[in-house]
Lab assay of single mutants.
Amino acid sequence: TTFEIRVGDLRITLHNADEEEIRWAEEALRRGIHADEILRTLEERRR
């Protein structure tokens, strides 16, 4: 599944994310964390 998060002009697309990952990514985007860093962190958490 694919889920797109939008916060203002910012956007990130997550693939195969669970609800916790989606909530975490949305909050991180709101705090101004760059999408590349969010994706990198999620990848590390999945390992």
Rank of each mutant, 00 (worst) to 15 (best):
T1Y: 08
T1D: 15
T1I: 14
T1Q: 14
T1R: 08
T1G: 15
T2A: 15
T2M: 14
T2L: 11
T2Q: 14
T2W: 15
F3Y: 09
F3I: 15
F3H: 15
F3W: 03
E4L: 01
E4Q: 01
R6L: 15
R6P: 08
R6N: 14
V7K: 00
V7S: 03
G8L: 01
G8T: 00
G8R: 01
G8N: 02
G8I: 01
G8E: 04
G8W: 00
G8C: 02
D9A: 05
D9V: 03
D9T: 05
D9S: 05
L10I: 14
R11S: 14
R11D: 04
R11Q: 12
I12D: 01
I12C: 03
I12W: 03
I12P: 00
I12Q: 01
T13Y: 02
T13F: 01
T13M: 03
T13C: 09
T13W: 01
T13L: 05
L14R: 00
L14M: 04
L14S: 01
H15C: 06
A17N: 02
D18P: 03
D18S: 14
D18F: 13
E19D: 13
E19R: 07
E19G: 10
E19W: 13
E20I: 11
E20Q: 11
E21G: 07
E21K: 03
I22K: 05
R23A: 13
R23C: 06
W24A: 04
A25F: 05
E26H: 05
E26R: 07
E26S: 09
E26P: 00
E26Q: 07
E27M: 06
E27C: 14
E27N: 09
A28Q: 10
A28Y: 05
A28G: 08
A28N: 07
L29C: 06
R30F: 07
R30N: 07
R31H: 13
G32H: 06
G32F: 06
G32K: 05
G32I: 02
I33K: 09
I33W: 09
H34S: 14
H34K: 11
H34L: 12
A35D: 03
A35G: 13
A35K: 05
D36F: 10
E37F: 08
E37S: 08
E37I: 12
I38D: 00
I38T: 01
I38V: 10
L39G: 03
L39Q: 05
L39P: 02
R40Q: 12
R40T: 09
R40F: 06
R40W: 06
T41Q: 13
E43K: 06
E43M: 12
E43F: 05
E44P: 03
E44D: 12
E44Q: 09
R45T: 09
R45F: 07
R45P: 02
R45W: 10
R46L: 06
R46S: 07
R47A: 10
